[in-house]
Amino acid sequence: MTNKVKFSIYRFNPEKDSKPYYQDYEIEVGEHDKKLLNALVKLKDDADDSVSFRRSCREGVCGSDAMNINGRNGLACLTDIADLKQPIVLSPIPGLPVIRDLIVDMTQFFHQYHSIKPYVIDERPMPERERYQSQEDRKELDGVIECILCACCSTACPSFWWNPDKFLGPAALLHAYRFLADSRDQATNERLNDLNDPYRLFRCHSIMNCVDVCPKKLNPTKAIGKIKEMMLARTV
């Protein structure tokens, strides 16, 4: 049994195109090809090998195949074809420079992630074995460590679109909270000082697109709220 899938895909190859355009395709997929990524791979294999996108794990853990699917950011490998209106309109995740087709330049996104010092800071001498951490303290990290850095959230955020160089964006802020929340981290004050800026943190206007699109069902808005609470608690 096969099913027809119709696509309209954003195409741009800087070597030959002066501007982007949408190209239509129609392909047949097998009954086991349930996910959008299956169909895209089939399209590339059989119809047009020049269609360009990133992919790797095909199970939602590597974060490679974020794209804008019928106007909404998501991972192709976790999106059911059956749930999508056709033709399926595929565009790059918005707000970042396009390298080619669905492949964007993520430099800005990772720059913001790196800028929050995404590592546990604890300069004390380490014990021979593991540091101890209570189950309650560890629980604080659930719902943040699952982030796969796919950028669905940050590139769905209007505040990030306007100020990608100054506003950290929901993904980097989620990670900022991840290290603030880690009982092993010793740099809470420095981290809060760094975030206390009209742009880095406070450009978040709780629009909550990030929560809406996160393929891992995480909640950056809640994490941002917790950072603001920590800041407030520090001043009183």
Partner: peptide, 23 residues
């Protein structure tokens, strides 16, 4: 192995914990 995994913990790897706080 125990040194290598302890090192990962020191790097911040968020291991699940037992009631006594160990990995």
């Amino acid at each position: 192995a125990t040194d290598a995994v302890s090192e990962l913990e020191h790097y911040g790897m968020p291991f699940d914990r037992l009631e006594n706080g160990k990995i």
